[in-house]
Design a protein around this nucleic acid. Structure first.
Lengths: 153, 153
DNA sequence: AGTGAAAATGATAGATT
DNA sequence: AATCTATCATTTTCACT
């Protein structure tokens, strides 16, 4: 379904999502028209889900990253859906994954200070109904930031 | 340092990193010239670290996400640097964080299958010298994908 | 800092191979 | 499917406020 040129396009757009179509066409060895057509097809098929500016968390006053593993009291559909809705509604939760194993979800949290984190746990996390346990691990720093996906050739 | 308009710009560019400068200017209530100037300043200051296309992992044959917590045998500077270099060099490791607590690093892994994961652990992870322990948790799915940072108004 | 207009660059559709 | 070309939109610069 994806050919070699598509994969090159995806790689380049992961590295620089704002590159011009002309530059992109150059890099993948195509002229601008077919290159743009391929990009549009990839966008419409959802292979390219979107484009995002990557922001320096510290520069915007959000130096603290925490990973929180939570478990639920029960796994009835109603409770799970309510919890997931709550997760999606809390802005400090910037990513969330459903886990296989002892814990149910892994949440990635971004806040400005430890005080804010305490506040976040008290007012946004513990208030979610149906949570059984909350385990926090703080990150000191980022060793490797979000990298291009290892798309196989 | 950042004013209200800067924050609006950052929010919009996190939501859509390929929005045109004209559209962006409209949304933040500015004309295109000063809007572009602000964007350039934010880029040069590193507040905007870059732009990335967001790719659908499943669509490119990478449906499996795993979180791996590792500990090191020792924390001498030389070993730490070598481990971090290795982490940065392995493409399947798409993110890595230095942790506070029992484990030393949290790695986010993306692979195409459980077989590939096994292979990855054997050939890319266990081969990193200085690792004491490796603990894997698989993710069933994504409940909340990378969301705009909660930049306070 | 912001405006507005002019020049440069890029995006896009259509005819062609 | 890709290229080439013509047209249209956007970006970018600059003189002015």
């Amino acid at each position: 379904m994806l050919d070699d040129i598509d994969r090159r396009i995806l790689l380049e757009l992961q590295r620089d999502g704002r590159i011009s179509n002309q530059e992109l066409a150059d890099r993948v060895g195509l002229s601008p028209s077919p290159c743009l057509r391929r990009v549009r097809i990839l966008e419409e098929a959802g292979v390219i889900a979107g484009y995002r500016a990557v922001i320096d968390q510290e520069a915007v006053g959000l130096p603290i990253t925490a990973f929180v593993r939570i478990t639920l009291e029960s796994h009835g559909q109603e409770i799970v859906e309510r919890v997931e809705d709550e997760i999606r509604g809390v802005p400090e939760i910037v990513e969330a994954y459903l886990l296989a194993g002892d814990q149910d979800y892994l949440l990635k949290i971004t806040v400005g200070s430890f005080t804010s984190y305490e506040d976040f746990v008290r007012t946004r996390l513990r208030t979610i109904p149906g949570l059984a346990s909350i385990e926090t691990t703080f990150a000191f720093g980022v060793t490797k930031t979000v990298s291009p996906l290892p798309i196989r050739p």
